[in-house]
């Protein structure tokens, strides 16, 4: 088991851009085991990863491959059994306590008793921003995700896509360096998803944030990322890391280019190789 993992273990120097002295995120030999009623589950096994600042890294793999667990471990929502995670040179817990990342969940998780504007203001209230500052940031955030004019609506009065956009604005409101996104568009239909993908790309271009993005859609991963991390289950591990160097201002149309399809194919092969059909 360990042999398989080490065979696919990427080179230790990762793929960080050479000019950044310190990676945004550094995962060193992390293993994470859950104890369940049916015995231990090896959610992550000897995972090794470096992400440079300003990268957009997607994690793709079948369910149970540990992609969400890895994201949660970076966010200090799970604690690794072994190994070390550094976020901006700090431990994951320090980084969380210093609010260095914004997290977007699979569901919008907006509080139904708060208006959209007050939902976006929630982290700002908790972090003690003054009221005028809060209002300015909420206004900016609403415009950033094209929700200007919807601030006084309640979340349940909006469509699913709008809700997820509001939750992205909420994650960005306190201007964290890192954005962690766990299948944020998984529940949305294809057309809304395409639109949000483009918006997200633009947002990333404008803000220059480091993004870690979990998905199970190959086109989404290829379209958005600078690097794609392919993962495989039982035990959860990284099997391939694919660079993806499209220009930052790419359009949806690049999905029809041969380069795009070549990368998508490589991801698909990677997924198949790591996929066992006996389970």
């Amino acid at each position: 088991m360990t042999e398989t993992a080490s065979m696919f273990r990427p080179a230790a120097d990762g793929f960080g851009s050479p000019r950044s002295p310190e990676p945004a995120i550094e995962v060193s030999d992390v293993s994470l085991r859950f104890e369940t009623r049916d015995g231990p589950v090896h959610a992550l096994s000897h995972v090794q990863l470096k992400v440079a600042r300003g990268e957009f890294v997607s994690f793709i793999g079948p369910s149970g491959c540990g992609k969400t667990t890895l994201l949660r471990a970076v966010a200090d929502l799970e604690t690794p059994t072994l190994g070390d995670i550094r976020v901006e040179g700090m431990s994951a817990e320090e980084a969380r306590l210093k609010r260095r990342y914004g997290y977007v969940f699979q569901a919008p998780a907006l509080y139904p008793w708060r208006t959209v504007a007050r939902n976006i203001a929630l982290p700002l209230e908790i972090m003690g921003f003054a009221k005028p500052e809060r209002e300015a940031r909420v206004k900016k955030g609403l415009e950033l995700v094209n929700l200007g004019g919807f601030g006084n609506k309640f979340p349940w009065q909006l469509s699913g896509g709008m809700q997820q956009r509001a939750s992205i604005a909420r994650a960005l409101s306190f201007d964290p360096d890192i954005l962690l996104m766990d299948e944020p568009f998984g529940a949305l239909d294809e057309i809304v998803r395409d639109m949000l993908n483009q918006q997200l790309l633009r947002l990333w271009e404008v803000t220059g944030k480091t993004v870690l993005f979990v998905t199970h859609s190959i086109p989404e991963a290829v379209f958005l990322s600078t690097h794609i991390v392919v993962m495989s289950p039982r035990p959860g591990r990284i099997t391939d890391i694919i660079a993806c160097n499209f220009p930052r201002d790419r359009q949806l149309e690049i999905r029809e280019t041969p380069e795009f399809l070549a990368i998508a194919n490589r991801v698909r092969h990677g997924l198949r190789a790591g996929h066992s059909y006996d389970g």
Binding site: R72, A75, D76, L77, R96, L97, K98, R99, Y101, G102, Y103, F105, Q106, A107, A109, Y111, W113, L122, P123, E125, I126, M127
Partner: peptide, 26 residues
């Protein structure tokens, strides 16, 4: 409150009191 809503408060490094007043009581 759902575990996702609680995790959200954790990512903000909210105190117990903040989690109580902003999430769990409502």
């Amino acid at each position: 409150a759902s575990s996702m809503e609680r995790d959200l408060m954790k990512t903000y490094a909210a105190t117990d009191w903040q989690t109580l007043t902003a999430l769990r009581l409502p």
